[in-house]
Write a protein that binds this DNA or RNA. Structure first.
Length: 423
RNA sequence: GGUAGGGUACCGAAGCGGCCAAACGGGGCAGACUGUAAAUCUGCUGGCGAACGCCUUCCUUGGUUCGAAUCCAAGCCCUACCA
């Protein structure tokens, strides 16, 4: 069996490791963990790399622990952040954990009945009873100031105009302690994370070495950017969520379908389990006929299927077909409702729609934040009603614009859809 | 606690008594071109109005002034150095 490190390297999932010994250690089943920030009740496309790395490890027979930072999330990781974060409330974190586990379960097997189930832990469970004194006595003394201050995440922030609070500075202690705790309780011997986590990961390996005299490992993978240098995972300025209530099937599918030619092969390797032979074929297909976007389709299909299931994928593809097929003629309101089930929508009473200027309606429906924005959109020719461009500000909503008297498909620009329901 | 600097729209950053809803850059939105690309080009980017315009903004609260983002006072917050 090929060592999993080779797989990681081949799939752009490897950047660095704390020791070359890790390769040998991975020949035997190892317990490994990665952390997730509970800043939201849904994970995002930006979390895919970590998720995929864990999924590969689980498939290779290693024991996987998904750590959710209920405690660390209350503090805020300064890594890669230019500013101090807003602190989350404990209740909010609690809620977020539920959503995150649900998201992860689509990639990682948590079923206790399966042969190698993953487990999820919340570091709040072991930090909640820790007192400040305990922390200083039992943990703090093993952290050396020189090392702590030399971390990139600290240095960068100290050099910035904003500086850094003690709270954030201590973040690395908490994350370091997580590793120690998991080592002691589960024999966890490897932490993985994005390259921005290097400092936090080594805080953990150091702590275990000092306290237990044992070598544990850390491994990082590169942060994914597209070929124009933008951080992966944002669509039109918004994060792409795994939760269908936040990012519709359609939007999720579309996000991957729009992957740049220059990125799609790399993304297939990182974000899917598609075998290399197949990826090579797709690479050739992109080179031969880029306009066809065959590789993008596979990428979008694979991920949509994994995250939203066959049904979600079917809806996303159907929506794509309808929306880029031109006319909406012949579609029943019921079909549209299904296709747009989780697209942004609003319901207005008929008398606020029919006979009113279109720009006022879209502002009232909440599609645009203000009338001014709505007006601008219409003036610039960016609004479409049922896939027909709106001509000007004087355009009024007619009864005939409503499919079966109750629905209209609104679109701003090329890609952003909104469903208007009338009662 | 002391000294110095600073807090301007989504972000960065000009403005330092009227010509300021506030330069410029980034971001965002839209349009053209295209492959539902990328790159490029164009327009828009506080609220209300078709529009001359009106309204609410430049950390907060007071004050000076015909007039304040700009001056003064107090407060809050941030940064650096010192203690």
């Amino acid at each position: 069996m090929a060592n999993i490190l080779d797989t990681f390297k081949a799939r752009y999932l490897f950047e660095d490791m704390t020791s070359p010994e890790l390769a040998k250690a991975l020949d035997k089943p190892l317990t490994v963990y990665a952390g997730f920030d509970p800043t939201n009740d849904s994970l995002q496309a930006g979390n895919f790399v970590t998720i995929m790395a864990l999924a590969h490890l689980q498939r290779a027979g290693h024991k996987v622990i998904a750590l959710v930072g209920g405690a660390t999330g209350l503090i805020g990781d300064p890594s890669g952040k230019s500013k101090e974060r807003n602190l989350l409330s404990a209740e909010q974190v609690e809620l977020n954990l539920v959503g995150i586990k649900e998201n992860l379960a689509r990639f990682i097997d948590f079923d206790p009945a399966s042969p190698n189930p993953a487990v999820m832990v919340n570091n709040y469970d072991w930090f909640k009873d820790f007192t400040f004194i305990d922390l200083l006595r039992d943990v703090g003394r093993y952290f050396r100031m020189g090392i702590m201050l030399s971390k990139d995440s600290v240095k960068k922030r100290m050099e910035s105009d904003d500086g850094m609070s003690f709270t954030e500075f201590c973040y690395q202690i908490l994350q370091g302690y997580d590793f120690l705790h998991l080592y002691k309780t589960c024999g966890c011997a490897l932490q993985i994370g994005g390259s921005d986590q290097w400092g936090n990961i080594t805080a953990g390996t150091e702590l275990v070495r000092r306290l237990c005299g044992q070598e544990v490992f850390g491994m990082t993978f590169p942060l994914v950017c597209d070929s124009t240098g933008k951080k992966f995972g944002k669509s039109e300025g918004n994060a792409v969520f795994l939760d269908a209530r936040k990012t519709s099937y359609y939007d999720f599918y579309q996000f991957f379908l729009r992957t740049l030619d220059a990125d799609v092969v790399r993304y297939l390797k990182i974000f899917t389990f598609v075998p290399f032979e197949r990826i090579a074929e797709l690479e050739a297909a992109v080179a031969a006929d880029p306009g066809k976007r065959e590789a993008q389709q596979v990428l979008a299909e694979e991920l949509t299927r994994t995250v939203h299931g066959e049904q979600g994928l079917a809806i996303a593809k159907k929506a794509t077909e309808v929306l880029f097929g031109g006319s909406l003629d012949g579609l029943a309101a019921g079909d549209l409702e299904k296709i747009f089930a989780n697209v942004a929508s609003a319901t207005l009473p008929a008398d606020q729609v029919i006979g009113k200027p279109a720009f006022e309606v879209i502002a009232a429906a909440g599609m645009m934040a203000s009338k001014g924005e709505a007006r601008r959109l219409v003036q610039q020719g960016g609004l479409n009603i049922n896939n027909v461009r709106v001509s000007g500000l004087e355009r009024v909503f007619e009864a005939t614009d409503l499919i079966e008297g109750r629905l209209a498909v609104l679109r701003s620009g090329k890609k952003s859809f909104f469903l208007l329901k009338v009662r």
